[in-house]
Design a protein around this nucleic acid. Structure first.
Lengths: 238, 238
DNA sequence: GAGTGGTCTAGACCACGAC
DNA sequence: TCGTGGTCTAGACCACTCA
């Protein structure tokens, strides 16, 4: 099915990134756009709301929609993104070391939620990430065996998310993330090039499928000098 | 003006938080809800989309909308929130020490953007935040003098955001945030109870008004053991 | 096939900003 | 007063899930 509002959204994103409208200028009004794209105003509004949510424009009642021209895309970790997408976006030389791949029955609080009746074991994957010659990220992933029945060394070296979404056809719904700063564990010290840093920045995520079932828990442990998280927030109206 | 979809949203939030529908159960369908609230289905959909965006429900095509029952509200820093809201939400004993309040002409990269023609000075406010007897947050705020002509010691001790939104009637639009881990500066060591911690977690924010003009730059510097940032992310479709 | 959420329409009225 | 974006409606068709 062709989604008009998505086509319009992508078309407008392209125009904005090609600087058809410079920063701080107004784009055509909703009425004009609905004539240009030969569609209803509500459909245009859907596209504009997407643009607004992704930080391209700010809508101002009574005036119009203006381009927000801030340096976008410096480090797109906001939202759910995989290591492979991240390094590909930034053109970085990256290497993955699979340190562990095993099936275990784990009772830790965060991980117990992955168990399902008849699936007491969970996948445990530990991977060290090397960027520009330094091991600076330690990813510890736990997957429910109900939704991920099998997993191979090769998949872990490549991209687990490619495998989940394209081979297993799992559809990711949403994630809860928590960012904290911790003291390095013995494991961190062994597997990362910590160079004397006495803290690691940790992103802990619980990832849910589109049908709202929990299937993954992850800790992404970063050397603090290489850690950066970018967020775009709108003021919530009541 | 009464906004129906907001009323319905708030009503549903209340019902969810009162556990009218337990976690993982379905709420009534959009058609049922539009009968219950005597409104059109599109209006119901607006309310449900809000619920989905704020992490209360997950909509599943062909099936319905299910309650997401994860421990919400542990530390609501996601989005834009002020220190006063934060401590009030958590019922914490908090105290603010205003260490500096001055007008300055600053040329640092992040701050120069606050200058406007005829307004070369910016407000600089440095505040140490004490929670449960420990100074653990250092807030360094810079405001454009175009939008914030005056500022007093008293306002800084109370809540600057109260003053901006209620007295000056500024309307906040959106913010870009960046989280990094840094080594403590000499200032951090002097003004905070760092207790030997060798890193600080820093949230750097650029805050824009509803008309998309930049008016504030902030660094919120946290002792790492007391820092926590929670995020709710949806998989972006294309 | 019945019910669900997703998309789309054509029109209406409102609140707001600018002239 | 005019144009803007914000809300709301009543109806239509579609894709999907499940019995």
């Amino acid at each position: 099915m062709q989604k008009k509002y998505l086509n319009i959204y992508h078309d407008l994103v392209k125009k904005i990134e090609m600087n058809v409208w410079p920063a701080a200028t107004k784009i055509p009004s909703e009425n004009e756009l609905s004539k240009i794209y030969a569609t209803s105003r509500e459909t245009i509004r859907k596209a504009l709301n997407l643009l607004s949510q992704s930080g391209y424009i700010q809508k101002i009642r009574g005036k119009g929609s203006v381009i927000i021209g801030v340096n976008k895309f410096d480090f797109p970790v906001s939202g759910i993104i995989s290591f492979k997408e991240l390094t590909a976006n930034l053109n970085l030389k990256a290497k993955t070391w699979v340190e562990e791949l095993s099936l275990k029955d784990i009772d830790d609080e965060e991980i117990a939620g992955l168990k399902e009746p008849g699936h007491d074991n969970v996948w445990k994957v530990v991977r060290a990430r090397e960027i520009s010659g330094e091991k600076i990220i330690l990813d510890k992933d736990y997957f429910s065996t109900k939704y991920v029945p099998s997993l191979s060394q090769k998949v872990c070296e490549d991209s687990i998310y490619d495998y989940l979404e394209n081979e297993l056809e799992l559809v990711i719904g949403f994630a809860r993330k928590e960012i904290v700063v911790e003291e390095p564990t013995e494991e961190d010290r062994q597997l990362l090039d910590l160079e004397g840093f006495s803290n690691v920045a940790v992103i802990k995520s619980q990832v849910y499928l589109a049908d709202a079932s929990l299937f993954q828990y992850t800790e992404s442990r970063h050397r603090p000098d290489k850690f950066r998280f970018v967020d775009f927030a709108r003021r919530i109206k009541n």
